[in-house]
Design a protein around this nucleic acid. Sequence first.
DNA 1: GTCCTGACTCTTC
DNA 2: TGAAGAGCCAGGA
Length: 109
Amino acid sequence: MESKNFFDDVYDVVRQIPVGRATSYGSIAKFLGSKLSARMVGWAMNACHGMPDVPAHRVVNRNGVLSGKHFFGSPTAMQELLEQEGIGVENDKIKNFKNVYWDPSAELL
DNA sequence: GTCCTGACTCTTC
DNA sequence: TGAAGAGCCAGGA
């Protein structure tokens, strides 16, 4: 656990994402120190499969596209999860992403 | 021990 | 304005 210091930080932020909201990889990376690459955040998500407390489906790319939907087992699993939380998803992209966007640097900090 | 890949983002041509 | 390339860190082979 502690060995994944960086991963744990990412999970901690993702875990605090309120229901009905979503954030981007870059925002999390920036919140962690802006020195971390957004790729690392995505990589952390890749290892979050054993973390049921980590809503990876709430983490999308800068355009609000469900880039990692394919990693959820089903290309629609991520979309359905978001819809269940009240987040509108269309064409694999979050509708009104600007409205559901959650900035950890502004909400947490 | 070294090389490649990876769920992204930013800068430059 | 649109597209392409480079950069970041960590894990796996």
